[in-house]
């Protein structure tokens, strides 16, 4: 796992993906920080954090698109799968490499909070809770997007499909609103909603159930990815 993690981190920076990802992430975060915190002269950063949800939907699939699809296309997975490592180790190595890149991206929000602290009192509890929320959201989304990358040989397909599916997950709330009149369905959709849970964090509600929700999503989708590899071996 360690070897794969280190290789992927290196590959992020030798290819342009790391720079594109960080540049776009910082640009978007900076824009929202300027617009919602600096312009309105407030130390409340909830606007920044709720906007970063959408940025994550678009950027996370870009981060993960290459990880497994390219292995399949270049036939390098043959080297990995015949090496004395478990499939779980291969998947997790790549997963944590993407998660690390993502963490480097969201760490910028702490810097913003630090800047704000020079001008007024920052509620650090909320900022930290927000960062944790963003991290958990990323953990779940990266697992989903990595799973999609394992299904295809094409990076672009992996990215586009990833964005669509992550967006669909966000849209669950909207669908729930339309399905208001029906029984049960809205409750189920709300329970699966990534955004409602995330929103609770941004206003300072730390709910252990949500933490469990994000973590178990990550675990389940990493498990699915391992199964995709297993299935290909056995078919």
């Amino acid at each position: 796992m360690g070897a794969i993690y280190r290789r992927e981190m290196g590959a992020f920076f030798t290819s342009s993906i790391a720079y594109v990802f960080l540049a776009v992430f910082y640009l978007a975060a900076g824009y929202f920080f300027f617009g919602s915190s600096l312009m309105s002269a407030t130390t409340d950063m909830s606007g920044v954090f709720s906007s970063l949800f959408f940025i994550s939907i678009i950027l996370i699939p870009v981060l993960t698109m290459r990880l497994l699809s390219e292995e399949k296309k270049q036939k390098t997975e043959q080297g990995l799968l015949t090496a004395p490592v478990s499939i779980g180790g291969i998947v997790l190595g790549k997963y944590f490499a993407a998660l690390t890149m993502y963490a480097i991206g969201i760490a910028i929000t702490l810097l913003y909070a630090l800047i704000l602290s020079f001008f007024g009192a920052v509620t650090w509890g909320i900022v930290v809770s927000n960062c944790i929320a963003l991290m958990l959201l990323g953990a779940a989304f990266i697992a989903v997007a990595l799973f999609i990358s394992s299904l295809t040989e094409n990076q672009v397909v992996a990215a586009v499909l990833g964005i669509i599916i992550l967006f669909a997950l966000y849209m669950l709330d909207v669908v729930a609103q339309f399905a208001d009149a029906l029984p049960v369905i809205p409750t189920v959709l709300h329970a699966l909603s990534f955004y409602t849970r995330y929103y609770d964090f941004t206003v300072g509600l730390f709910d252990p159930a949500s933490v469990l929700f994000y973590v178990s999503t990550a675990v389940i989708f990493n498990f699915f990815t391992v199964r995709v590899f297993e299935k290909r071996r056995w078919s």
Binding site: A3, G10, K75, T76, Q78, G79, P84, V85
Partner: peptide, 28 residues
């Protein structure tokens, strides 16, 4: 086992030494 498949599983973006180091780590 040391395996050389039909198409060597090389990461094109790495240097030869970087790649061999990676394989060294991968094989523990």
């Amino acid at each position: 086992i040391g395996y050389l498949p039909e198409l060597p599983p090389l990461y094109l973006d790495m240097t030869v030494m970087g790649y061999l180091n990676f394989v060294y780590d991968l094989k523990k």
